[in-house]
Simulated scan of single mutants.
Amino acid sequence: MNDKTTHFGFEQVPESEKARRVRGVFSSVAQKYDVMNDLMSGGMHRLWKAFTIQIANVRRGERVLDVAGGTADLSRAFARQVGEAGQVWLTDINPEMLAVGRDRLLDQGNITPVALCDAEKLPFPDNHFDLVTVAFGLRNMTHKDVALAEMRRVLRPGGRLLVLEFSQIWKPLAKAYDVYSFKVLPWLGQKVANDADSYRYLAESIRMHPDQGTLAGMLREAGLERVEYFNLAAGAVALHRGYKF
């Protein structure tokens, strides 16, 4: 019997339970996810994703995997860039989030394949994708090291991994950020999505996520090279990049 525990926000839970509880959070907020993103970030999440798309430098004909892609913000942009000769896969572990992303792609005429799957067990062959991205999903994964290793496995030699995630904010702003995270976010969640608990978990999960330097080290341990990161919003968000050679 596996009695190992891991964090779900600030709470310690059995490893076997975390994925189920994370699925519950995102099932609850799926329909209001994009509205809440705009409210929580003042629309800045769009700029963070636009920067990620720019850094990704996707070319026509490439193969792209969007892990934990949810409502398909990145996948929609990549689908336009790769053209008919390329391919983009949108994946998520949560069926409600994946359904929202699939419908958004279809509404824009993008017939992009989708897959309901666990990032720790990607159903794709080795050395297959030119680019793998994960945006605001890594911190919710139980075994981040396993997920990163899987992402590297499916990259072809010369391919790159991009991880966009909340990170450690500039220290002088930390107290104000805490007030916003633990007071304002749950209040917004209750008012807009009728779910304060999920947004309280969001704030807690950010605090439990590795900081910029630690996550860079995890990418290197997973076998990625030329690892670097870009701080956004005074470090509240960071984009990490690494290559497979």
Rank of each mutant, 00 (worst) to 15 (best):
L232S: 12
E62D: 08
G43Y: 00
M141C: 11
M97Q: 09
S28R: 12
V88L: 06
G217H: 10
V88F: 08
I55V: 15
L239K: 02
R160Y: 06
F26G: 03
I53L: 13
E165H: 07
L106V: 10
L188G: 03
V67M: 07
M1S: 11
A233H: 11
L164M: 11
T91N: 07
A79G: 01
R207W: 01
G24R: 13
I53G: 08
N57G: 13
V132W: 01
L116K: 12
S198A: 15
A196D: 05
P123K: 04
R241A: 12
K171Y: 08
A176L: 14
G109T: 03
P157M: 10
K4T: 05
A176G: 14
K244N: 06
D92Q: 10
M218S: 12
P123Q: 05
D107S: 14
K175Q: 11
T112D: 03
I169A: 10
K121Y: 13
L239T: 03
L47Q: 12
V146L: 15
L98Q: 05
Y201V: 03
T52Y: 02
V192C: 07
A85W: 05
D103V: 03
V35Q: 10
I206Q: 02
L215D: 11
G42F: 04
A30V: 02
A30T: 02
V132T: 09
F124S: 07
G42W: 01
P95Q: 09
L215E: 07
L131G: 05
A176W: 13
P14G: 09
R60Y: 00
H209E: 04
P210E: 01
M1K: 10
R60K: 13
S41V: 06
H45F: 02
A115S: 15
D34A: 00
A119G: 15
W170A: 13
R23Q: 15
F166I: 01
S198E: 00
S167K: 06
V227N: 12
R241T: 11
R153W: 02
E165A: 06
M218T: 00
E221I: 07
D38M: 10
P14I: 08
S16P: 00
D126E: 15
Q108C: 04
G235I: 09
A149H: 05
E225I: 13
G242W: 02
E150C: 10
Y229N: 09
S16D: 08
K183L: 14
S75V: 02
G86Y: 07
L185P: 00
Y201W: 06
F182Q: 04
V22A: 07
A68R: 01
W48H: 02
A77F: 06
S167W: 08
L188E: 01
F78P: 06
L138V: 14
Q12N: 12
V163C: 14
F124E: 03
F230L: 12
Q190W: 15
L122T: 02
N37E: 04
R20Y: 09
D178I: 00
V88G: 11
W89D: 01
L90M: 11
F51E: 12
V58G: 02
V227F: 11
A50D: 15
E204H: 06
L90C: 10
D66R: 05
D3E: 13
G86R: 07
V64E: 03
V237F: 07
A85F: 04
L122G: 05
R207A: 14
W187S: 08
K175C: 01
R152V: 09
K4E: 12
L90N: 08
Y229T: 03
V184W: 09
Y33N: 00
